[in-house]
Structures are given as structure tokens and as C-alpha cells.
């Protein structure tokens, strides 16, 4: 049985783009033919579920039955990756709960892979979050995400202060999510489809949509840059260890790309359009 991977996306502050990052990751996994299931903790009505209803379930992570639904089923089904979009304000309590149920220890023992994408806000309070988060991380892969999608300016950040916090977490890696044109953001929101579906100019039903070519171009360019960041940090290697993919050959895509390499966004979109 493959080692399950859990990807937690969170922040203690709202409106910093957690769900946007979750959506780009779901598209990325799908593009790499990595089976993924997602949990949206924004009860009762999750935003992530609106964009990826087929793979997403809305849960209340504070409730034990819902925690069981997520963590007792990591080996069940055919999804090798479990992605959890943690709603604002409960990142630290969630990590604490994971420690209490022995999840962090299991990751430490190599029984599962645990990755945290910590979406940072522009304020100094975000740096305190890093400090608080560090206490629960164990051997998790930790990614500090600077999200510029909402035209955020990290104005309060002093580089030296930032570095001092950054160094507190062993092997922390920084990722930058670039800004996307407001109008493009708005149109994808209205379309309520995954980014790659929007780029392919399709509706959820698979019928042709009437999305602007310009806006699709902006989304394609933006998503391409984010995927380049995921390539850089080796997301596929984290959730799908190399020896496993080599043995099963599951990373091999329709094209002739090397193992684990992403296909260009435009080709993913073209394939989606043909399906």
C-alpha cells in the first residue's frame, strides 16, 4: 500500500487566499494524475467544494466524527493524497489536535507524509503564527506561502525579522503566489470551475463556455507560474515518493515528459477541452 500523504493548507487569518492555493494544488495533482481527495473545513458551505465538488467533502474539523472521517480513512479508497483546506483561525488548534491524536508522530515515524502550506498575510501577526505553528510541525514539510493574488503588499515585514522567524522551522521553504488580474479572478469565481477548466473554455458540464480569451490567457500564465513554483519545491516528489512512482509507472503522462515533470498548462487545458 502506498504511503498516504496529507497536505494541510491553512492560516490563522482569513482572506489570505487559502482556498485559491488549495485550488491550484488540486489542479496540479490532477494534471500529474495523482489521485487526490479534499476536505473543506469551511462549514457549512465550503468554497473549495464549489470549485471541486467531485473530490471535496465539507467537514467540521473540530468534531471527532469528522476527524475520524479524514484521518481513519487515509489508506482507504484510491486517493493517495488528502488535501485539507483549513478555515481561518483554526490552523494552530488543528495542528494541536493532530499532535494529540498521534498524527504528527506517525509522520515522524515515516508512516505517512505530512506537508503544511502556511499562507501568510501581510501583517506582523503572520510571523507570530509561524512561531506558534512551528511547535506542532514535527517532521512535516513546511511551505511558507507569500500570496500576492489579492495584491497584498508585505509592507509590515522587515527582512531581518522575517528571517529570524523563518529560520525557526527546519527546512522551511518559501513559495510565492503571484498576483492575478482582478477581472480574471472575478470571472473564474463566477464560472465556479477549476482553473484548468476555465483555461480550456469549458463549463462544469463539459460544454463550451464563453470565457474571454484574454482572461483565460492571464489565468494560464498565472497558473503556469504557480506550477513552476510547485515544480521547484518538488511537490510531486513529496506526495509520491520517487521509488514508488518508478515502480508503478503512475507518473508517466500522456506525453513524453520525464517522470514527475508537469505538462504545460496549455496542454492540460487542451486535453480538458477534448474530454
Amino acid at each position: 500500500m502506498a504511503k498516504p500523504a496529507v497536505v494541510l493548507i491553512g492560516a490563522d487569518k482569513g482572506g489570505v487566499g487559502k482556498t485559491t492555493v488549495a485550488r491550484t494544488l488540486l489542479d496540479y495533482f490532477t494534471a500529474h494524475q495523482i489521485r487526490v481527495r479534499a476536505f473543506d473545513t469551511e462549514v457549512p458551505r465550503g468554497t473549495l467544494k464549489r470549485f471541486h465538488p467531485d473530490v471535496t467533502e465539507v467537514v467540521d474539523i473540530n468534531l471527532v466524527p469528522d476527524q475520524m472521517k479524514i484521518f481513519d480513512t487515509l489508506q482507504d479508497g484510491d486517493a493517495s493524497v488528502t488535501l485539507i483546506d483549513v478555515r481561518a483561525g483554526i490552523m494552530s488548534p488543528t495542528l494541536r489536535a493532530l499532535r494529540d491524536i498521534g498524527f504528527i508522530d506517525a509522520a515522524k515515524k515515516g508512516q505517512l507524509t505530512f506537508a503544511v502550506f502556511h499562507i501568510l498575510g501581510p501583517s506582523i501577526a503572520s510571523l507570530d503564527e509561524i512561531s506558534e505553528t512551528a511547535a506542532y510541525l514535527g517532521d512535516a514539510k513546511y511551505f511558507m506561502v507569500k500570496n500576492f493574488i489579492n495584491n497584498t503588499h508585505f509592507f509590515e515585514w522587515d527582512e531581518a525579522t522575517h528571517s529570524s522567524y523563518f529560520k525557526r522551522i527546519k527546512d522551511a521553504v518559501e513559495i510565492v503566489i503571484p498576483k492575478l488580474s482582478e477581472m480574471a479572478t472575478e470571472q473564474v469565481e463566477l464560472a465556479s470551475v477549476p482553473f484548468v477548466t476555465f483555461i480550456a473554455n469549458k463549463k462544469r458540464s463539459g460544454e463550451p463556455a464563453n470565457n474571454s480569451f484574454v482572461l483565460r490567457g492571464y489565468v494560464r500564465h498565472w497558473l503556469g507560474n504557480i506550477w513552476a513554483e510547485y515544480d521547484r519545491i518538488g511537490v510531486t516528489d513529496i506526495v509520491r515518493p520517487k521509488e514508488l512512482t518508478t515502480a508503478t509507472g503512475t507518473a508517466s503522462t500522456a506525453g513524453n515528459e520525464p517522470l514527475g515533470r508537469p505538462r504545460p498548462v496549455v496542454r492540460i487545458a487542451a486535453e480538458a477541452a477534448n474530454n
Partner: peptide, 13 residues
């Protein structure tokens, strides 16, 4: 502006 870009490029396509 994005609107103007759409009016140009989308119309050409």
C-alpha cells in the same frame, strides 16, 4: 485596462 484588452484581443480572435 482588462476591459480594453478584452475588447481588442477577444474581438480579433
Amino acid at each position: 485596462e482588462a476591459m480594453g484588452q478584452m475588447a481588442l484581443f477577444d474581438q480579433i480572435i
